[in-house]
Simulated assay, not measured.
Amino acid sequence: MASELLEIHPQELKFTFELKKQSSCLIQLTNKTDQYVAFKVKTTSPKKYCVRPNTGIVKPNSTSDFTVTMQAQRVAPPDLMCKDKFLIQSTVVPLGTAEEDITSDMFSKEGSKYIEEKKLKVFLTSPTHSPVLAPINGELKQDSGHETSPPKDGALTGVENIPPPRKVAEDVTGFETTKETVELRTTKDVQEFEASKEDTIELKTADFVQLSPTKDVEELKPAKTMVESKLVDDFEELKSKLSFLDSKLNEAEVSIMKLMEERSIANREKEKLKRELEMLKRKSDARTIQVGFPFLYVCMVALISLAVGYFSHP
């Protein structure tokens, strides 16, 4: 065909990848033709994504959209590279076709029917903030800039901030944010404690687990930024949908005004025809009266005829 059936925006699917969190992407389809177009969405990983709706009808010179949701993943792909792809098929359907009438046979290439296909690639992006933990090769590794374990030469310099082996897990759970995002090297700490046990160093675990308020605030700032960006995106999406609904409402109001004008015109024509019918009826009644003879005139003619006949035959 000379022109494409549907324009797709955007031309690729971008998901913000975070472990054990869902991510969504909105795709908009625009039909600039004068025909009804049906579409169907396919993917190479159907268990990984959820598409709502995966089929639909786009009316002439209008738009429609669908949402693709990536399910929560437990393992991050290497370097956030993704080979998943989506296929959007579209074809022209008869006027008045409903969404429930769409079948897989409509998108079959066996006949001479034109089927337009467009492929979309999937791209994964990291969150806008810089988290303390970043996925590396499918596993969570602690960033070097946020290391919380004591220095290796603590026992040699006489620092008294080495935790005891039996209370390492208890002390750490007092300040760790999530159990799955912090990697503790307890075995190494136990070995260092055993090596320094003979020196009878007094341990102060409270100093080890104490965290500065400034670091807590710095860790909360990225989360706040992410929430604000998500709220802004949701607001923009709602704003676009609201503008679309307003345009539809304006179209409906224009259609209602046109129907009311047509109704008033029809009523005026009806009244005009009614008046013309009454005039024709009056004219027909007048003609009936003029064509007929008066009853008295008929009686007089009959009597005169009888008298003439009686006197003419004695």
Rank of each mutant, 00 (worst) to 15 (best):
K188M: 13
K197N: 07
K274N: 04
R185G: 15
T91R: 01
E99Q: 10
L203C: 03
V227A: 09
K197R: 13
V51A: 03
G154A: 13
I102A: 10
Y36V: 14
E276P: 01
H129N: 08
K221P: 00
T67Y: 04
V122T: 15
E271L: 15
Q11V: 07
D234K: 14
K188Q: 14
K118Y: 02
F39S: 02
T63M: 09
K281L: 01
F208V: 10
V92L: 09
E183D: 11
C25E: 10
K118I: 06
D234G: 06
Q290C: 02
K141E: 01
I88L: 06
K118R: 11
H313F: 11
E100G: 00
V209F: 00
S23K: 07
K118C: 03
L120H: 04
C25H: 14
V41G: 04
P163G: 07
G138E: 05
S90V: 05
S64T: 07
E170N: 08
F175V: 06
D153H: 08
M226C: 05
K283G: 04
D143Q: 07
T128E: 12
L13A: 13
V58M: 08
F175I: 08
V41C: 01
E7T: 03
E271Y: 10
F244T: 06
K224P: 00
S212D: 15
T43F: 00
T69P: 08
D189M: 15
L140D: 03
R268K: 09
C25L: 02
P127L: 02
S255N: 14
P127E: 09
G292M: 04
D153R: 01
I256Y: 13
D84W: 00
T205E: 15
I256T: 13
R74L: 12
P78F: 04
A72C: 02
F15A: 07
K119Q: 15
V75D: 05
Q89H: 02
D84H: 02
A72K: 10
F66T: 01
N61S: 13
C82W: 08
M300G: 06
L277S: 11
L124K: 01
L13D: 01
E18M: 08
Q11P: 09
L13Q: 04
S212I: 03
C299D: 12
V75F: 05
V168N: 01
D189I: 13
Q191I: 04
